[in-house]
Each structure stands twice: as structure tokens, then as C-alpha cells.
Design a protein around this nucleic acid. Structure first.
Length: 94
DNA sequence: GCCCTGACTCCTC
DNA sequence: AGAGGAGCCAGGG
């Protein structure tokens, strides 16, 4: 699922969990990504929490996202309103 | 089997 | 808007 996230877009743990029918498994998604090997085409850096916060201990994630065009708030949070990916179809630009 | 911990989320102060 | 507490599921000691 994470692999389907296009560049410039992000997904939240809770969103993924709910897509899978497990709204309470947000942490499980995180732990799953924790064991996600790099180079598998799994852009785990496109996954942030509900507040748009990047993973702790992984500052490079923000750099990768910004590099893809993901807007960030001044406090270092991702602008979910602008880059939250929706597989059902992109929402209108306002 | 109990207790602590964690790439989470929500509510309240 | 930042900080603290509770609920959540699974893993490890």
C-alpha cells in the first residue's frame, strides 16, 4: 500500500490502518514499516502520523519529503491538507 | 502469563 | 498550539 503512494504525497499510519479495516492498528503499521527493508520500492518516508510529524530518530525523512515537493509547516509538520494522498481520487485544490 | 515499551491516535488542560 | 494521560495491538523480557 505504501508502495502505491505517489511522490509529493503522504499517508498517515491511521489512514493506512483504516484502509485495511484496522483503525486501531496504526501502531502496528508503524512497527511493520520498522521492519521494512530499504530498496524494496517501499517509500516508507511517505508515511507520517496524524499530526504530520515525521518518525522520531529519522530526520532524513523530512528531507526526502521536501525533496519530493511535500510542503512542511514552520514547526516541522507536514501539511497533510496539501499532501495527504487519497487512493479514491485527488481532492479539489480548495 | 504479567509488565514494559513503541515509526500511533484521541481527549483534556 | 504544546504537554500530559489513556486506549489501542503486538513483541520481547
Amino acid at each position: 500500500m505504501v508502495r502505491q503512494i505517489p511522490p509529493g504525497k503522504v499517508l498517515t499510519y491511521g489512514a493506512i490502518a483504516r484502509m485495511m479495516g484496522r483503525p486501531r492498528h496504526a501502531r502496528l503499521v508503524g512497527r511493520a514499516l520498522w521492519g521494512t527493508p530499504s530498496g524494496r520500492g517501499i517509500p516508507c518516508h511517505r508515511v507520517v502520523n496524524s499530526r504530520g510529524g515525521t518518525a522520531p530518530g529519522w530526520d532524513g525523512q523530512r528531507n526526502l519529503l521536501e525533496n519530493e515537493g511535500v510542503p512542511f509547516h514552520r514547526n516541522g509538520r507536514v501539511v497533510l491538507e496539501r499532501c495527504l494522498w487519497q487512493p479514491d481520487g485527488e481532492p479539489p485544490d480548495e
